[in-house]
């Protein structure tokens, strides 16, 4: 049992990863229909904040998670890249919905739709659905937290990401 003067031995990596996974700050960034479901996830019934991920920030410079919620058009793609570059490291991306994953229903004829946001920014978790239910987004956040939990080399300089 732990008492007041107990010592806990752990590694710096463990502590930092544990802290990071429990305080994800997503970017307020809605593109289309999925954004409504993202808002519903943060609102009364589903309450994303229970999972340590709910402080939606309005600026990319204060956030470490980007939820790409909606259809990415060609006009928007370069802006998403800019927003991603403005976020401080370490940062993660959830691609929410079929449109952000692979173009969704706009795959065949969508001449102005980017066929997958992973063509401009690296994606950690893909969420299927059109639009995904709030529970699905929560599941994705928890999956991302598992990934962050096992991240190594948290103090070191991050290796430059391999961009798509």
């Amino acid at each position: 049992m732990l008492s007041q003067d107990s010592l806990v031995m752990t590694s710096v990596d463990e502590v930092l990863s544990w802290g990071r996974k429990n305080s994800l700050w997503p970017l307020t960034f809605g593109l289309a229909c999925c954004a409504i479901e993202m808002m519903a996830t943060g609102a009364a019934d589903y309450d994303l904040e229970r999972f340590g991920c709910g402080v939606f920030r309005a600026t990319p410079r204060q956030s470490d998670l980007m939820i790409v919620a909606g259809t990415v058009t060609l006009k928007m793609a370069s802006r998403i890249r800019t927003l991603y570059d403005q976020m401080p490291d370490p940062k993660w991306v959830i691609s929410m919905g079929s449109c952000a994953n692979k173009g969704g229903p706009y795959w065949h004829e969508g001449y102005h739709v980017l066929k997958g946001v992973d063509r401009v920014i690296p994606v950690d978790v893909y969420v299927p659905g059109c639009p995904p239910r709030p529970e699905t987004l929560i599941e994705a956040v928890m999956m991302l937290q598992k990934k962050i939990r096992v991240t190594q080399n948290t103090l070191g300089i991050f290796e430059p990401r391999k961009h798509a």
């Binding site: 593109l31 289309a32 909606g70 259809t71 058009t73 006009k75 928007m76 802006r79 229903p105 706009y106 004829e109 969508g110 001449y111 102005h112 739709v113």
Partner: peptide
């Protein structure tokens, strides 16, 4: 505008 042009009429 035009950041969410999803080609409805073409579809």
């Amino acid at each position: 505008i035009g950041y969410l042009h999803r080609c409805f009429e073409k579809h």
